[in-house]
Design a protein around this nucleic acid. Structure first.
Length: 262
DNA sequence: ATGGTGGAGGGTCCA
């Protein structure tokens, strides 16, 4: 079974690339981020024609996440709990959706970028990571077979960025961001791509549109899969669909996938 | 310090 993540950076602008990628790589489950669309404008009919059910948590203009699946999925929650001061305790950003599908729990995650540092957005990122840690601790404690995947907007280690110096002031590499990332992993989750490629350099998933980042391979690794133990035991492979970043009208992220034994 | 690019949506905001 193949479980992929793809930050599409606008599902309407990206629809031809998305449908092409679904057809060519046939993921069983595809977690999408940055739909940049309200739920009712997501082209679910095109996705259904491609053979996918779609659970969508959209938002006007930015954010927005979805879970596409070959088999029907059952929504568990849309919106990350725990933000103070909001009526229902849910987030006012559409950055989290969780569902049961094909015998496992899957979450599609779009973690806040957090720039500039310091500032309110960085504070929000760190709060959000703390809330994510609390949510997934519950899944861990309940021993739910789980795949947490998406754009975490954290480059875990110095080798996960093309230039430590160029990224030094960025929210994606701050010690606080990395500490929050580690505090989630320390629950016991396996980070799949690095587990499969423990020694790879230049293992990137995002290349900025600006400054010729793609042609000079100035990438960073911020899209991840975290696996609970029974899923980790079934892990067969993990790869970046890097070639898609070089296509016409590409997203600035490449898709990333894992293969687990059926 | 600035600009470089791209998506959404009709302002700028976001990355």
């Amino acid at each position: 079974m193949r479980i992929a993540t793809f930050n599409v950076n606008g599902i309407k602008a990206r629809l031809p690339r998305l449908l092409e990628w679904l057809e060519e790589t046939k993921p069983d489950i595809a977690c999408l981020q940055e739909l940049k669309s309200v739920t009712e404008n997501v082209p679910v009919a095109d996705l259904q024609d491609a053979g996918y059910h779609a659970l969508v948590h959209g938002q006007k203009g930015f954010n927005g996440v979805a879970i596409l699946s070959r088999e029907p999925a059952e929504l568990v929650m849309a919106g990350l709990p725990g933000e103070d001061g909001l009526e229902d305790g849910k987030d006012d950003h559409a950055r989290y959706i969780e569902a049961d599908v094909s015998g496992l729990r899957v979450a599609s995650i779009y973690l806040p970028n957090g720039n500039p540092v310091p500032g309110a957005k960085f504070d929000y990122k760190l709060r959000w990571m703390d809330r994510l840690r609390e949510r997934v601790a519950h899944l861990w404690d309940a021993e739910v077979p789980t795949v947490l995947t998406g754009d975490f907007n954290v480059a875990p280690e110095p080798r996960d960025v093309f230039s430590v110096r160029a990224m030094a002031g960025d929210a994606l590499t701050q010690p606080e961001s990395r500490a929050a990332w580690r505090s989630i992993l320390s629950q016991g989750w396996l980070e799949a791509l690095r587990a499969v490629h423990p020694h790879d350099e230049e293992l990137y998933t995002f290349w900025d549109y600006q400054a010729g980042a793609w042609p000079r391979n100035a990438g960073i690794r911020i899209d991840h899969h975290l696996l609970s133990p029974t899923i980790a035991d079934r892990l067969l492979d993990a790869q970046v669909d890097k070639e898609y970043r070089g296509r016409e009208k590409a997203s600035d992220h490449a898709p990333v996938w894992i293969e687990i034994a059926d």
